[in-house]
Amino acid sequence: MARSESSDGVSIRGLRFRYDRGFAIEVARLDVAAGEQVLFSGASGCGKSTLLHLISGIETPEAGSILIDGTDICALSGTARDTFRGRRVGMVFQTFQLLQGFTALENVLLSLMLGAPTLDQPRVRAQAALERLGMRDLHAPVERLSVGQQQRVAVARAVVTEPSVVLADEPTASLDPANAEAAVALIRSAAQVAGAALIVTSHDPALRSVFTRVVDVSQYGVATAAGHMGAAR
């Protein structure tokens, strides 16, 4: 297993992922240090989400390695990769992807139960995570919460397992500028408190000023055969 100079954080080497339709992503080398906060920018369809899915192990690459805290997730079996993701990777989605029919607290507890079953006092941890983000009504079903509250639950769920890296996929896409700024601030501070690296994807140029490091993902796009970049999302 190849090890990068620093074993903490995320290290990508020689990554290649091919889409069905003549388009591929190739990342020769990309490192995100432990606790570092990075913005993945680029136009819609340039492969930001795919790159995030690869880092989380949801998608598997054709070639290359992705090390998270020194472990190459591409070398893990399917089940081991799922377990690893549950424990080390927190994810926040544009539409939050909360589990309907469960309360705010239960959504966060599920993350602990599935991702970090060995952590003690899950209920205390879940409550603390939610309260730290300003959530009051922990026992309301998530479908009755406001968008802002749902966002808090989604962030709490991502950081409660004390992951190595938090991946936020277009977290501001459905928010107005004021709320978008607040949402990003919320995610950044939560990741910082949890001691996790943070990768946020966004096509919103306004966020470029917020992050000290911005990676333009369009540079990794490669046309294969008679490729066209536009529609490959």
Binding site: G78, T79, D82, L110, L114, A116
Partner: peptide, 16 residues
């Protein structure tokens, strides 16, 4: 399927 996908993201294996 969306619920299944969320459970998988949170760390549940396909077998689970």
């Amino acid at each position: 399927r969306r619920q299944v996908a969320i459970l998988r993201v949170l760390g549940a294996s396909a077998w689970r």
